[in-house]
Design a protein around this nucleic acid. Structure first.
Lengths: 135, 135
DNA sequence: TTTCACTTTAGAATCATTATAAACTATTAC
DNA sequence: GTAATAGTTTATAATGATTCTAAAGTGAAA
C-alpha cells in the first residue's frame, strides 16, 4: 500500500493523516493476510517494529477512529480484552482458547440452512459464527 | 427447585453448600427461562431480591465456581464486561446491542450446512452462532 | 465439640480503558 | 509563506471490572 493510498484512506474517512495515524495505518493495513490484535499486543508490536514512540492513549484513540471509520472490526471473544480485526468484510472466526488465537473464516466457507427469525420488532443485522477449537 | 436439590447440585460439584452459595444458586437456577447476567447486574438483583448481604468478591468467587463446575456458561459479547448464562447446553444467541440484551436460541433452531474443517492439528470443540439485531 | 480446611469478607491491588487538559500540528484563510 | 484554529497527541489521572490478600468466619469430619 502506497503512502498516498493511506493518506486517501484516512482523508476519505475524515481523519487527518497525522504522523501517528499514518504509521499505525501502514502497520495495520499494509499486509496480505488479515491481522487480529488487542491494543496491548499492537502497542508491543509497534514498539518493536517502528522507531516512533506512541502514547498508549494515542493507540486507543487511533484504533477507535479506525473502527468508527469502518477500517477495523471488533471481534467478540470471551474474556475482558477487546480484539480487533483488519478484515471488515462479513466473515467468521475460529478461536483457539489455548493460544488466544483467532483465524478468519471466509463468509462463503459457512453455509447456514436454517435460522430463527428475529424477535418482535427487531431485524437481523448480521450473523457471526464462532468455531471454538481444541487440541 | 428444592433446597435439597441445590445442596446436591453443589455437593456433587465439590462445592460446600454455604449460605451464600445456596442463596445465589437458588436465585440463579430456580427459574423457568434461562438467565443472562453480568456480575454487576447479579449483584444489584441480589441486593434487591434477597435480604442477605454479599461481598462483591463472594459473587465473583461464586460465579466462577459455578462456571468451573459447569453450572454456568460464559457468553462472548463485544465490550469489556463478562456475561454469564444459566443455559449450559449447546445453544446460540441473539444479541441486541442497543439494549445489551441476550436471547437464547435453541440449538435445533439453527442448522449449518457447511463448515470449514479445523486447521492443522486442531479439532472443533463447538460452534456458536451469534445473531446481532437492529431495529 | 473440637479442629481444620474451605469460604467469606473488606479493602487493596491490578488491568484495561477512558477522561483531562496542556502542548503540538495539520489545514485553512489570508 | 504565516497566522489562526480546529483537530491531535501526550502524560497522567480517573474509572470500572476483576482479582488478590490476609484476617475472620463457618461447614464438616473425627
Amino acid at each position: 500500500m502506497k503512502k498516498t493510498d493511506i493518506f486517501k484512506k484516512l482523508r476519505s474517512s475524515g481523519l487527518r493523516p497525522t504522523k501517528q495515524r499514518v504509521e499505525i495505518a501502514k502497520f495495520l493495513f499494509d499486509r496480505e493476510k488479515t491481522f487480529h490484535f488487542t491494543v496491548e499486543s499492537l502497542n508491543k508490536l509497534l514498539e518493536k517494529k517502528t522507531t516512533s514512540k506512541f502514547a498508549l492513549a494515542t493507540i486507543y484513540n487511533t484504533v477507535h477512529s479506525f473502527k468508527n471509520a469502518g477500517h477495523l472490526s471488533e471481534v467478540e471473544v470471551k474474556g475482558n480484552k477487546t480484539y480487533f480485526d483488519t478484515n471488515v468484510s462479513n466473515h467468521h472466526h475460529f478461536y483457539d482458547s489455548e493460544t488466544s488465537q483467532l483465524i478468519d473464516i471466509d463468509a462463503k466457507e459457512v453455509v447456514i440452512q436454517k435460522i430463527p427469525k428475529a424477535p418482535n420488532g427487531k431485524k437481523i443485522k448480521n450473523v457471526e459464527v464462532f468455531i471454538n477449537l481444541k487440541n
